[in-house]
């Protein structure tokens, strides 16, 4: 098996170990969030947030061209997260106040951010050319589909810290958040701070999506937030078991995807997502198998 070979080969071991470490942080974080995303039907907002990252990438590219931040560093990550958090809060706020229908609000932010990102990247290239420096080397392919094998120690550490932060916030607020997710209007009547819980959920979603983009890219990041929960909810109706299955499905998807990627020389991100889709198909068939209550 090629993955095992790569993991034991001194030339490629660090590369794959970094990818496994960073990927595990991502899938554990997404696995815990995933049942909430599925139950509250936040998948499309997740898609909107991930595509909003284009805007953040554009802003970061302009700042990099102006020499204000280094491409690929922590500052760039913070700019993208900040852009996605603002977009997530905007989408949540606009749809909540029913100024626009939810799908229209999400679509607006999604295409607006993508268009802004594309123009800002072009602007950054023009700025870089006028200043006689090379533009940000980020490839569109890695933005779209991820580049987990390119994760360096700093990016791995950032991913782990994000995962720890998201999981800590979820643990700390688990009771009011669960109440809010189960029954938002009643939760408010019981004193649960609805706007705070809604904003917190959007912020956690944005951080998870941006972190997951390293593994699966803009296009497929939402899959890591939707598929583990969708798999787990086919197999159990107990919260702790569902959460455990979602995390396990994410880890199996990660290892399986990296194995497929190494074996057939496919891109890791799409490979991970395809393994998760296969796991979902299996869970779906098991749920409908004869004799299941």
């Amino acid at each position: 098996m090629e993955l095992f070979t790569y993991l034991t080969d001194p030339l490629t071991r660090d590369l794959y170990l970094q990818a496994l470490l960073a990927g595990t942080a991502v899938v554990v974080m997404c696995g815990v969030l995933s049942p909430i995303v599925v139950v509250r039907r936040l998948g499309f907002i997740g898609q909107g947030v991930s595509h909003s990252a284009f805007g953040g990438i554009g802003v970061a590219a302009v700042l990099a061209a102006l020499g204000r931040l280094s491409p690929g560093g922590l500052a760039e990550f913070i700019v993208i997260v900040a852009f996605c958090v603002v977009a997530a809060l905007g989408m949540g706020g606009v749809s909540r106040k029913r100024t626009l229908p939810e799908d229209t609000a999400i679509g607006l932010f999604l295409v607006g951010s993508m268009a802004l990102g594309a123009i800002l990247v072009q602007v950054s290239q023009n700025i870089a050319a006028s200043r006689g420096v090379s533009a940000s080397g980020r490839s569109w392919e890695s933005i779209l589909f991820g580049s987990i094998l390119m994760a360096g120690p700093a990016e791995t550490l950032t991913g782990i810290l994000c995962a720890v932060g998201v999981l800590a916030a979820l643990w700390w607020f688990r009771r009011p958040m669960l109440f809010h997710v189960f029954d938002e209007e009643s939760a408010r009547a019981f004193g649960v701070p609805g706007p705070l819980m809604r904003s917190l959920l959007m912020i956690l979603l944005a951080v998870a999506v941006v972190t997951a983009m390293k593994l699966a890219g803009v296009v497929l990041a939402t899959a890591l937030l939707v598929l583990p929960g969708a798999i787990a909810l086919r197999l159990s109706r107990r919260l702790t078991v569902v959460t455990a299955i979602a995390v396990a499905a994410g880890v199996v998807g990660l290892i399986g995807g990296l194995a497929v990627s190494a074996q057939f020389d496919f891109q890791p991100g799409p490979s991970v997502v395809l393994v998760l889709v296969a796991l979902f198909a299996g869970a779906w068939m098991w749920e409908r198998s004869p004799g299941r209550a």
């Binding site: 049942p35 139950v39 669960l178 997710v181 029954d183 209007e185 009643s186 909810l233 919260l239």
Partner: peptide
């Protein structure tokens, strides 16, 4: 509340 406003798909 009026029943069935809650997210009954939540596994609790």
């Amino acid at each position: 509340p009026q029943k069935l406003e809650a997210e009954l798909g939540l596994p609790i």
